[in-house]
Every structure is written in structure tokens, then in C-alpha cells.
Write a protein that binds this DNA or RNA. Structure first.
Lengths: 366, 366
DNA sequence: TTGAAAGCGCTAACAC
DNA sequence: GTGTTAGCGCTTTCAA
């Protein structure tokens, strides 16, 4: 409807229309049973006929709680896809998409899952969810903007500088996702990177009996990568292998770079297994290995970490460690609610379990 | 940080710490240039040392605008995946995922894209985004909750009953996505379903010269389906074909049902082309056609509509009409902002262009 | 350039 | 049961 010259109706309008006080209107909304039925009906009729919608802001201000939780994600990658061979017909573009290389948009999908989990949990608890992607220089503004409107804030690791987060945390509970930040005083929820990688590596080394391994790590400053690498080393020790036995290279978690690294690796010597610190890298490795004419898993097994969708569709499908991103979002909301009821107390960290998914690139047995 | 026994600081706290009035604090925040530098510095220092974050609610209340737009999506499908053959080791589950049938989670991905588009646009305009998935009986509550906290609301078609929407629209601008609801008085943004299907069908009939066609429609009450079907009929007329020539069946937009329908279809007679009203159906049809030992596109071409991810990974890859979901979200926010500056005026409808993506299941030429 | 004061729309005592 | 009233934390005239 677009008709609307007047200001939106308020409790006062409803009250006078129904011939009651504003307190009674408020009661009808919040504690209906405390109002006589006849009165209630009159008020409800007034609400309907006026088109009254209570102001969440006034309510939050008076009630000292907003009923909203915030979720701060890293900036969505706004990568407009390129499209080949375009023809236009009758206003509708026709694209020959046959050779279109499917682009990895994985990281976005990740956040989407977190978001969905958070939304679900928030809804179940009667809370609304406010999302923001903290990118660009105006990040401070956004953070403050969001922080000022919510009862608690969940922030994905490395989205916001610690200093800013600490400022915000003096006002509302903050929980950091995907990184254990207890040392900084934050509650946090992360995923059991180390155990996941250790278990997967144990499969490769112990179960499959492979001894010739290359390890494709990620950026050295990634906390995820550090934990995964630690888990990997742990598995080596478990089986009496010296880490030195393994050729380790550092990538950037990207597919392209991993492809290059894998090529170099294969030029030197072909390991029996290539274990990667994330799925994107593993897909890049897969590209290189297959391009070299090697067969996976027969000549070479390849593993990833994350459980991105692309790994379910690759050929061969990618063995990986699946992170429960939806659960991460859900747990975040739960943690905020918990902290709201118990403001004091030491920071807590929750570790969510991961799952090893054995697929064709590194099967249960050879 | 978890230390926090006291209430969050307010303008008053900042004001007295800086030895100024609350008005000055407000000015420092909103119109810094209107305050002498020395004063400003003192205030900013106080803000930092107190950990002051302005209350968005109080601000919205006083300022009569929230700076937030709402996005209402249909309930996320909370379909916990089933997992086969589980083994546990050291706390980490190991799953033999080799035969795991990839489940279609497409519709969710859709909303995710809309969401991302909306978030991006909102951010660029300095607005925050509040999301909610309106499911269950408490939908009314949610809608009112969200509506009371935002300056405008974007709603995906069929998420909220018209009546409720009209109520809300008396307070704030409402824009409906994916369905032209001008007749009900709403601004709306949709996708050019008819032109998309017409163009695709013209390719099949005109370019490829196919005359033996089956059409798998969706639920009769779906506005999307109606438009697509109209576009299809239009293409038939364009080429002098009577709609009666085409065998039409109605599915439910789901893969499973489409598989059944296709089987029945093939039992009767094998058409040269099967045009489907959405991708899920087309994937189901593909399943059935291939299971029957027919080759696609050699024996049979198959087309979908939507442009879901699964269609990029299917074998053969699915020819389809791609809807710009991200643009839908972006346009929604823009429409709200527009309407905010121009409350009066007839409802507007925006049609976004679609793209035909020719892939292997129905290539540019045979 | 700064301060005082009047709301913004609601909730929650506290009276009646 | 229902009404009165004092805030909730901020913005914004209007004066000074």
C-alpha cells in the first residue's frame, strides 16, 4: 500500500480509539490475560483498524533489551562472474555456457550456512537477527551501528580488529566464531580442526598405510591452518613418522596457487598422498594431478578440509573433513543468550565436532 | 570481554566525563564540524575510555528512522541430512560418503543469494539489514516484530499473507519479491519469467527445429509457473504450433515427482525435447531419461529454469534460464529507499532481465 | 559554539 | 482490571 500521508499510529492513537489508557494497550500486547476480554477485543479492533504496529525501538528502549542479535560476517566477495559468448535475442541474453569454467564461490556459501544456522536458532528463541558484512573503511561505523541495536554480537574471526571488538564488548556480549579468542577475553566457538585433520591423516597413514606424503598448508597466519597442521603433525607422531619425512608447502588456501604448488611438487617426485589444509587447495591439487595423467586415488590420494559443496561435485569427489557451519551459527546465538543471563564469569570456548567424509579421492580402503 | 557489572554508558556518562552537555556529545557523533576541536577531542576521549556505544534504539526513536531494512524469507528448510555408514574414531566421526546421493538444497541457496544482494546494497546505502524467516504459526509475531524495527520491508512472494502485509504496509513501505503484486497495492520486483521461457523455447523450436515436445509444468498456483507457461505458449504460437501438440504434465517443482512424471511420459512416447518449468524438475527428468538409456542431448534435449547450482554440476550440464537472485535483493533495497523518499504514488513493478544459459543438455546447435 | 528542555513511543511500577 | 506517571537514551529546536 502506498497511501500514507500521516504518521504511523502509536499506542496513544490506539488507546483513544479504544477508549482506554496506553497502559491497557501495552497490556493487550504483552500480557493479554491481564485484560478483561471485552476491553481486549476493543483494543484489538482498534489496532486492526488503525493499522498499528508497535515500535520496536521504543519497546527496546523502554524494556532495556532489543530482542535482536547481530551477526558480523567478513565482506561478501562481490565477484561478478564473467560470461563468455553472449548473444541477445528479444531482450533476453543467450549465453553459450558450455565451456564456462565453474567458479569457486565457496567461501560465500560458508557464511551463508552460518547465517542460516544463526537465523534458525534466533528464531526459535524469539529473537531477530541483524546481519552485516564488515568491509571497507567504514567498518567501525557499521560495527557501532550494529552493536548499538542488538543485545549481543557474533563475529566471524578476522572480521573486526580486536580493539574495536573490545570496545563493543563493554556494552554487549560478543562471541567470536571460528577462532578461540579466550585469551583476548572473548567467548568463542570453533571447530575441532586439529582432531579432524589428525583423524583424516591417521586414515591415510594408518589405515591405508601410506608413507609418502606431501602436505599443502595454508597461509601461516591463519589460525585454522595452524590447528590443522598441528593435527597433521600429531598424526605423524602417532605413527612414528618424523615430520621431516613429509614435504610441506605453503599456499594461500586458493585453488590457483595450489595448482602451481602441486605442479612443482609433482616435478620433483610423486608422493602417494597429498593432504591439503583446505578444500580449495585440494581441488587445485586435483586439477594438477589429473592434468599430469595420474589417476586418483589409484596413483595418488588427495584430501581436503572444509566440506565445501564443490568437493561433492568434483571428479573424483573429494575426501574431506566437514565443518558444521550451520551449527556454528546456531551455537553462536546460544552462546550470546547464555552470556546474557550470566554476564560475569570467565570466557568460554566451545569446540564443535567435525566429520571425516571419505569419498573417492581418498576412499575407505584401496 | 566479560567484565561488566554496570549498565552501559550513555550520553550522560560521556557528557559528564567530558564536562559538556549531552547535546554536545550528540553533536560530536552526528555533526562533528559543529563542535570546537578541543571540545570534540575531550568528548572522543571520554567515549573511548568509557567504551561508549550509542543506543541505536534511542537514536531511532528520537530520529524517527531506524536506518534498517528488513528482509523476510520463507522458512529455511531445516532438512538435517542423513548420513550413511558411520564409524567413530577418537571423537571424530568418519563417514563413508562415496554413495551419498547429493541432496538438492537449492531453494535455500536461492534465498542466500537474495540475502547477499540485499545486504550489499543496504550496506552501500548505509543501512543495516534485518533478516527473518517467516515460518510457523508465530509468523504474525515475527512480521510485526520486524516491521516495528525497520524503515521498510522486502518480502519474498508467498511468505506472508496479503492481509498481514497490508497491515504492515500502513506503517512502512513494503516491496514484494518475485511476484508482481501491484494489484494488491504493493511495489514489487520480479523476474522476466515469460520472456525467459519464450526465448528458450524459441531456441528449441526455432533454432533446433524440434517439434516433438513435452512440457513439465509446476504447481498450478505458482505465479512463477504461470508466467513461464505463458511464455512457453507464446513461443509455440510464434512458430505456428498449437499448444495442443505439446504434451503437458503438472509436477510440484520437485525432482522426485518430475522423475515419476518423466517415466510415465517416456512410457507413452519419447518426445525430442522436454522443457521444464524449473531446474529441479529438469534434473528429475534428466534422471529418468538417462535411466532409460537415452542420450542427452542426442536422443532428447532437456531444459530447466532458475539457474541453480546443481544444474552446473549435473551430467550433462543443464541448459536453463538464469534468474538474477542477487539483483533481486539489491533492487529490493533500492525500491524501499525510493519509496521512502516518495511515499505517495501508484505501486511500481520492476522486471529484472533473465539469461538463457545454453549448456550440454540442450546446446546451441545439434 | 554550547546548553536546556521537550519530546520520540513504549514499559513497568505504583496507585486506584 | 485499569489509569497515571516516570523514565529508557537519544536528537533537535531554541536560547544564550
Amino acid at each position: 500500500m502506498t497511501t500514507q500521508g500521516t504518521a504511523p499510529p502509536t499506542v496513544y492513537d490506539v488507546a483513544s480509539a479504544a477508549g482506554v489508557s496506553i497502559a491497557t494497550v501495552s497490556r493487550v500486547l504483552r500480557t493479554p490475560d491481564a485484560v478483561r476480554e471485552a476491553t481486549r477485543d476493543r483494543v484489538q479492533a482498534a489496532i486492526r483498524s488503525l493499522g498499528y504496529v508497535p515500535s520496536g525501538n521504543a519497546r527496546a528502549l523502554a524494556g532495556r533489551r532489543t530482542g535482536v542479535v547481530g551477526l558480523l560476517l567478513p565482506g561478501f566477495d562481490v565477484v561478478p562472474d564473467e560470461r563468455p559468448d553472449v548473444v541477445t535475442d528479444g531482450g533476453v541474453r543467450i549465453v553459450d555456457d558450455r565451456r564456462h569454467v565453474t567458479q569457486p564461490t565457496s567461501s560465500n556459501l560458508y557464511f551463508d550456512e552460518v547465517l542460516r544456522g544463526a537465523e534458525t536458532e534466533a528464531w526459535q528463541r524469539g529473537l531477530a537477527l541483524m546481519v552485516a558484512a564488515g568491509r571497507g573503511p567504514s567498518r567501525d561505523v557499521i560495527v557501532n551501528d550494529v552493536a548499538g541495536r542488538v543485545d549481543g554480537l557474533a563475529v566471524l574471526a578476522q572480521t573486526v580488529p580486536d580493539e574495536l571488538l573490545e570496545h563493543v564488548a563493554r556494552r554487549i556480549p560478543v562471541v567470536v566464531l571460528a577462532d578461540d579468542r579466550r585469551s583476548r577475553g572473548f567467548d568463542s566457538i570453533s571447530v575441532d580442526n586439529a582432531a579432524g585433520m589428525r583423524t583424516l591423516a591417521a586414515h591415510v597413514i594408518g589405515r591405508l598405510g601410506i608413507r609418502s606424503i606431501a602436505y599443502v598448508a595454508g597461509p601461516v597466519d591463519s589460525p585454522d591452518d595452524q590447528e590443522r597442521t598441528a593435527g597433521f603433525k600429531r598424526a605423524l607422531e602417532d605413527h612414528g613418522l618424523a615430520p621431516a619425512v613429509v614435504r610441506t608447502v605453503h599456499g594461500d588456501f586458493g585453488r590457483v596457487r595450489a595448482r602451481e604448488l602441486a605442479r612443482a611438487l609433482l616435478d620433483e617426485r610423486v608422493p602417494r598422498a597429498i593432504v591439503c589444509s583446505n578444500d580449495q587447495s585440494a581441488l587445485g591439487v586435483l586439477d594438477a594431478v589429473l592434468a599430469r595423467g595420474l589417476r586418483v586415488p589409484d596413483d595418488d590420494v588427495v584430501t581436503g578440509f572444509d566440506g565445501i559443496d564443490a568437493g561433492r561435485y568434483s571428479v573424483p569427489r573429494l575426501t574431506t573433513v566437514h565443518q558444521p557451519m550451520g551449527d556454528l551459527g546456531r551455537a553462536a546465538v546460544r552462546a550470546i543468550v547464555d552470556r546474557l543471563d550470566r554476564r560475569e564469569g570467565p570466557p568460554r570456548a566451545l569446540r564443535l565436532p567435525v566429520e571425516v567424509l571419505l569419498r573417492e579421492s581418498c576412499p575407505p580402503s584401496l
